[in-house]
């Protein structure tokens, strides 16, 4: 799995961090998403998918292959 984020779309909602704190972080001030791990280990896959699903800005893309 490879994760891609779009910082321009991101609205800083932090749903990704709530869902997958090992994979996503937010910048302190504006809350824009930062990737901690763009090729997460398998145990993070479910949480990463959940983050992508929850993101209200459709800013997270998951490439499954």
């Amino acid at each position: 799995m490879k994760i891609e984020i779009d910082q321009v779309r991101c609205v800083g909602a932090g749903q990704c961090v709530l869902a997958a704190p090992e994979v996503f972080d937010q910048r302190e001030d504006d809350g824009i998403v930062e990737l901690l791990d763009d090729v997460p280990a398998e145990e993070q896959w479910a949480a990463s998918r959940e983050a992508a699903q929850l993101c209200p800005a459709a800013a997270i893309t998951i490439h499954e292959d």
């Binding site: 932090g14 709530l18 302190e28 001030d29 504006d30």
Partner: peptide, 11 residues
Amino acid sequence: AGKAKAVRQWR
């Protein structure tokens, strides 16, 4: 505003 992370912590 301007403190996104702190806001999330208060959630």
